[in-house]
């Protein structure tokens, strides 16, 4: 078992180091949600009225509403970024090093996943600290409660990225992931508007949002930030993680691989 933990530590440390070396990635991971928070939310503040819905017990500003969605967005982008780097690793050959380790393949992929989650959580807390600097301060205990929620949502979104990376053969095809995964998942969720607001314009859109696993990741984080547990969201996110991870294991099954060149 010590050998398994050695591999976990090494893979997480390598991913963290890689992330710290890529300053541009760190910066864009923070700037992206901050632009939404400072520019988009400020503009929408007047246009969008929000009623009091759980977990909120009082009126909140729009900036406060979208913070959990932006935390989810950071993890969604990070999951896809990890997926992109896996495709790159595969093209460059370094994925072979991982896959020829004598440890079980599911454990190696889980280690990769955990490394991505660790990096995404670092980004989320950096974002929350900057948001606090802009005056969006959440209950102190909420920051602690959010941690397990972020682990689970990170695992689910990372597993989705892992599965996608197993299906994308070339780096060039990755742009499609942005168009067909990130944007629909983000916009068809409760990250920007609550479900009831969506239902006002379209029942169908509301139903799609309710089925979107990213909606439940956002709600799990939202409730945790206010020290409450959304059981239904927890069930969705945990199930989503299991399904995506099993699909990723299937995607990385050597029986599905194709030979390379001589």
């Amino acid at each position: 078992m010590n050998g398994w933990l050695s591999a976990l530590r090494a893979i997480v440390a390598r991913e963290a180091l890689r992330f710290l070396h890529q300053r541009g990635r760190f910066l864009s991971a923070l700037v992206r949600p901050l632009v939404w928070l400072v520019v988009f939310a400020a503009g929408f503040r007047a246009a969008l009225g929000l009623s009091i819905i759980p977990p909120y017990q009082t009126y909140i500003t729009y900036e406060v509403y979208i913070v959990p969605g932006l935390c989810g967005m950071i993890q969604l982008f990070n999951g896809m970024q990890s997926s992109l780097s896996l495709v790159y690793d595969r093209e460059m050959g370094s994925m072979r090093l991982l896959m020829t380790s004598p440890l079980p393949r599911w454990w190696l992929l889980f280690c990769k996943l955990t490394a991505g989650v660790a990096v995404s959580i670092l980004q989320v807390y950096a974002f929350l600290a900057i948001a606090a600097g802009f005056g969006i301060v959440l209950p102190l205990a909420g920051y602690l409660w959010a941690f397990p929620a972020l682990v689970l949502s990170g695992l689910m979104l990372g597993a989705l990225g892992l599965f996608i990376s197993s299906t994308v053969r070339q780096l060039e095809n990755f742009a499609g992931v942005m168009n067909f995964v990130i944007f629909p998942m983000f916009f068809l969720s409760t990250a920007l508007y609550p479900l009831w607001k969506m239902a006002e314009s379209s029942r169908l859109l509301r139903d799609i949002c309710a089925l979107n696993p990213f909606t439940h990741a956002v709600e799990l984080i939202r409730f945790a930030l206010y020290q409450s547990l959304n059981g239904w969201a927890l069930f969705w996110v945990a199930s989503g993680f299991l399904v995506f991870f099993l699909l990723a294991l299937w995607g990385y099954d050597p029986a599905r691989s194709r030979p390379g060149r001589d």
Binding site: W4, A10, L98, L108
Partner: peptide, 11 residues
């Protein structure tokens, strides 16, 4: 080298 060793359970 250390990364590879860890993938083989050595640390």
């Amino acid at each position: 080298m250390r990364y590879f060793a860890a993938l083989h359970g050595l640390s």
